[in-house]
Design a binder for these strands. Structure first.
Length: 316
DNA sequence: CTCGATCCCTGGACGC
DNA sequence: TGCGTCCAGGGATCGA
């Protein structure tokens, strides 16, 4: 659920809290969501956190080179690197006093040089953490599309119009735009009066531009309000956001459209719940209101016997 | 190129 | 109270 505004909020909080701190040591719990756990343990100690940036839904902790005297017996490369953090659905990252009891599902603890720990908790482990050298980081980041806050009219239209995918799919596709998720996709489509199942190539230039503007308005406002807290999003200070009070479509099935009073409907587009006003956002030709009915068949595929294939950690 | 299906994972909601 | 079931969803992956 953390999307661009939530990640931006967390990044700002982190910037205030841990910029300039040096990482002393690393403790890991479950590591199945970490690219290369050993790399964290090997490369993080001794490095200073020089910057905290957001890239789409990722947070990027820029780390200094390891100086010769900052860590004994360091055997990794000493060049600067970056810690990439994706919060997935349920990720939290925040500093805490080292003595404070660990929250459940805490899987990464970075001891800092001021005695605090930077802790990452993630119940579902849909998140991702990776230590990347400069070259690998560049390679990683090229997979992503335009920043929705920066993208201009021409580029946006170029990435949307002419595509045969549904507009909802395109908005969610991180290689088209980086940072938009289910909530802000639905909110921007509602604001622009575009049905989520419309095809990119069927949008007029004018519609595309309206969508771009509404998306940017919504993202900016959501950042000001520190994001949306719908399930358990909390920022780096442990505070919830406020933008969920401004949702006009997302999560409002059956409730009246703020524009026309028609009940908001929910359907499945791109495999995700999609909320829209059937009157303000007319259905595209050929898109019958079938989706929800079809998802009734679900065989009892029993989950295989529990093989504790997962690695166990020291923390939790 | 785009689609749906499937999996990952756990907590919370809900029905009985 | 407790159990079973469904659902949430970002992203990777695979086959159609």
């Amino acid at each position: 659920m953390p999307e661009l505004p939530e990640v931006e909020t967390v990044a700002r909080g982190l910037r205030q809290a841990i910029l300039g701190r040096r990482i002393i040591s690393v403790t890991l719990g479950k590591t199945d969501f970490i690219d290369d756990p050993a790399a964290l343990e090997q490369h993080l100690p001794g490095r200073q956190i020089e910057a905290v940036e957001r890239y789409g839904k990722f947070m990027l902790l820029r780390l200094s080179a390891v100086t010769h005297d900052s860590v004994a017996g360091s055997n990794g490369d000493a060049a600067p690197g970056s810690l990439l953090v994706h919060l997935g659905m349920t990720g939290h990252i925040a500093p805490a006093p080292a003595g404070q009891p660990l929250e459940k599902h805490t899987h990464v603890c970075l001891l800092l040089d001021d005695g605090r720990q930077l802790r990452y908790t993630d119940a579902r482990r849909f998140g991702r953490i990776a230590y990347l050298t400069k070259a690998l980081l560049v390679e990683e980041l090229t997979r992503f599309g335009a920043d929705p806050l920066e993208v201009n009219k021409e580029e946006f239209a170029g990435r949307i119009c002419g595509r045969r995918a549904r507009i909802k799919s395109l908005l969610l596709d991180q290689s088209v735009l980086r940072g938009v998720g289910n909530i802000y996709a639905d909110e921007s489509l509602w604001a622009a009066k575009i049905h989520p199942a419309r095809l990119g190539e069927k949008l007029s230039r004018k519609e595309a531009e309206t969508l771009r503007r509404r998306l940017q308005d919504i993202l900016r406002k959501a950042i000001v309000l520190r994001g949306s807290s719908i399930s358990d999003f909390l920022d780096a200070e442990g505070e919830p956001g406020e933008y969920q009070r401004h949702h006009r479509a997302y999560g409002r099935e059956g409730k009246k459209c703020y524009r026309c009073k028609t009940p908001i409907r929910r359907t499945i587009v791109a495999g995700r719940s999609s909320y829209f006003c059937p009157r303000c956002q007319p259905l595209p030709r050929g898109f019958a209101a079938l989706p929800l009915a079809q998802k009734k068949r679900r065989e009892t595929k029993r989950r295989g016997a529990e093989e504790s294939k997962r690695k166990n950690g020291k923390l939790q």
